[in-house]
Amino acid sequence: MMSKQMKQAFIRMILWSLVFVFFLAIFLSGDTLATWGDNTRKTIMVAALFLAGFGGDIVLNIVYRKKKGEITKDERDDSIEKRAVSAGFIVTLVYVFLFAITLYTKNETSGFVPVAWLWFLAYSLICVANISVTAFSVFFYRKGGL
């Protein structure tokens, strides 16, 4: 049986994966990248999507809040959380590095980078960080202890 902490990590992983999929669908469809600054409708859609993501985190914290006298978290959960955050940090670091280098390589000859890619990086970074940390949490929980 999954512990409350593992369930929470699993649901957060699904939640942020969905946010990421919808974000990619919004951002990479049509001419969004070229017209990002003028596309108010899509800007609001992406903002609403991320509000839903963070809102979901808040709701999960309320649903899974500690009841009086209940032990929902201990040293093993803390240990797993620390390892998941460390591993997620490395994934996020690699993602930003590769993204920046790819942008540079693709636009090296023109000398210009479409500014919308910076918005893409900013938003996608939130998704990648959340997904990787929660996925590592689930992985470490499934592995057992540490």
Binding site: S3, I71, E75, R76, D77
Partner: peptide, 10 residues
């Protein structure tokens, strides 16, 4: 003062 899952893992 720990979770049942920790006892299982132990």
């Amino acid at each position: 003062g720990c979770t049942r899952q920790t006892i299982v893992a132990l």
